[in-house]
Amino acid sequence: MIIRNAYNVHPSVVEAPLSKHPKVQDVRIVSVPDPASVEEICACIILKEGQSVDSEEMKTFCVDIGMVPIEMPGYFIFLDEFPVVATLRKVDRKKLRLIAMEKLGLTE
């Protein structure tokens, strides 16, 4: 659960609509620290082979599909793969959060 401006946002509520973007192969949502809103939503995206997209295009897509503003990611980062847990069955969201914070230059 992500706490953003006193609202609870579940990652799957944001992941589902973003995964419908035609260039997106996979998406995971993590929280990153934000002094203004406690936590900010960060969309970690793996694009389909040969595709390219930027944060502005993703923001426009969110507006076009009618995403509620409180659920709209503040950050979009693009990765080649997600870190996985030792069993290789699930995405390691804790490591993914650290990767996102590093890419965005954020600290706790």
Rank of each mutant, 00 (worst) to 15 (best):
K59M: 12
D54N: 15
S12T: 11
R28H: 11
A6F: 13
V38L: 13
S37R: 10
K94W: 07
N5R: 15
M67H: 04
N5I: 13
E102M: 13
K20T: 14
V13F: 07
D80A: 03
V84H: 06
G105Y: 12
V68L: 14
V30Q: 05
V30T: 06
E57W: 06
N5C: 07
F76M: 02
K48R: 10
P33S: 02
D34G: 12
M101E: 13
S37F: 08
L47E: 00
P17E: 09
G66A: 00
K95A: 06
I70C: 07
K90L: 05
E71V: 02
K94C: 08
D34K: 14
V53Y: 00
P73L: 08
H21F: 00
Q25E: 11
S55C: 03
H21Q: 04
V53R: 08
A43D: 12
T60S: 15
F61W: 08
M101L: 14
V53K: 12
D64T: 14
D64N: 15
I29G: 01
T107I: 12
T87S: 14
Q25M: 02
E56Q: 14
T107F: 06
E49A: 06
E102I: 05
N8T: 08
L18Y: 08
P17F: 06
L106T: 00
C62T: 11
I29S: 01
R97H: 01
M1G: 12
D54T: 10
I3W: 14
S52F: 01
A43P: 10
